[in-house]
Design a protein around this nucleic acid. Structure first.
Lengths: 232, 232
DNA sequence: GCCACATTTCGGTGCCGGGCGAAACGTGGC
DNA sequence: GCCACGTTTCGCCCGGCACCGAAATGTGGC
């Protein structure tokens, strides 16, 4: 008797594959080789893992020349993995970061990062909080108010187009470091995308961590009344 | 290098353990022996699995005499497993039910069932739909309107007490058979509990399937304008 | 054409973990 | 006290799978 749940869980049950998925939560596409180096395993082994994950519907791949780029299959899968990871971290006794480099990295990630396709960390939670406070978002379910929709439009976000998409317009995503929900879904992704293209935030190094630029600081203050203290 | 995500996923990655968790999604406590029979494995093997799941934080156990009752650790874990299961079913090619008994069972489950602690199936989705239509619930996030809160109070549900609880007041839960969200969270659980104690619904046999009683039919019509056709 | 490099295929190895049954343990009923 | 029964412990077997390295394949650059 085959149990689909067990099959899917089994794909995430291997340390190397889990490391792949967590890395891919940054929302970008990685090559198989990058994932291999990241997880510290041989390229041949990583290749087999990637094939399993793609066949299992967890990842989607795209071949470009001699590279095989791979990303999470879709936002729902990203949300699912993120939720599982949050829950799992909560259960495990977490080893605190050790050494100067690790601590710096951990701090940067806790401050501001991408969570697949939207902003997370203290920054993401602060933005969400400000949106709730200003009544752009409402209630526990994160539904946009009329004022919120106007605000999105003011950022050149095509609200009508987003609403037509299959994925939920606004969704809660449990923050891994803050343990509080932040804005996700189509609107969260659009907001993040705008933040990058307007250079309010930029990536630090190769990971999920991002830095708020000086322009970003001004923009968040002007748009949401956010003070730097709330996220840095 | 230990990866918490892999550890948690690993607990769900075994067919027997997955079967346990799916069975426990009915929200009740099962004994270790019942789970063993359900999964078709030896009691000794089941005992070991239960221990793993309890130690891993997926299940909570409670010993009563010579029995070991076990349930899902909490509503969040139930929601996580349900989401994983829905996603997994979507990926796998599902074997259609075979034989008269299986078909009858499948139909009953699709019609109305419990999903951990709230109502699901066509009934659950129909109730949610009626609540949305009557503006008791709002938007994509399932936030209760003022009218909705009044309506809950009218059913002897202590809204203030529910709101103080840690778990989300209202939450979406993706329906396994309907592939559409239905009401979950503290309010969904309270509603389900009322439906049972008022005998609007009753369990069929030993599984998660429930039947709407004649009183239930009248009550759903009176309370929400639901027609029997919408869920049967 | 030839080299460099990313990826995949293939064999082989070692280990982890699920399975069982037998026996021990603990609790409740008589 | 004794038996019945649910549960657990233990020892053992076996299959599956993560891993590697070597070689093959495929692609881009020169």
């Amino acid at each position: 008797m085959t149990v689909p749940l067990a099959r899917l869980a089994g794909l995430l049950a291997d340390p190397s594959r889990a490391a792949f998925c967590l890395a891919l939560l940054d929302g970008r596409a990685w090559t198989a080789g990058e994932l291999a180096r990241h997880a510290g395993i041989a390229p041949s082994t990583a290749s087999a893992h990637v094939t399993l994950l793609v066949d299992g519907g967890v990842l989607a791949d795209e071949r470009q020349g001699r590279h095989r780029y791979v990303r999470l299959a879709d936002p729902e899968m990203a949300a699912l993995i993120e939720e599982l990871a949050v829950r799992a971290e909560g259960l495990a006794e977490v080893r605190p970061p050790q050494g100067l480099r690790e601590v710096t990295r951990a701090k940067a990630i806790a401050r501001a990062r991408t969570c697949y396709d939207h902003l997370a960390g203290r920054l993401g939670v602060a933005i969400t909080g400000a949106m709730l406070q200003r009544r752009l978002l409402t209630g526990a379910g994160f539904a946009f108010t009329d004022a919120g929709l106007v605000w999105l439009s003011g950022l050149d976000i095509d609200v009508a187009a987003l609403d037509k998409a299959k994925r939920p317009f606004a969704r809660q995503c449990l923050d891994w470091t803050e343990r509080r929900p932040h804005l996700a879904g189509a609107a969260g992704a659009a907001l993040c995308s705008q933040a990058f293209s307007r250079q309010w935030v930029e990536r630090i190094g190769g990971g999920r961590a991002v830095r708020v630029t000086p322009e970003g600081r001004n923009a968040f203050a002007a748009q949401l009344g956010l003070d730097e203290k709330q996220w840095s």
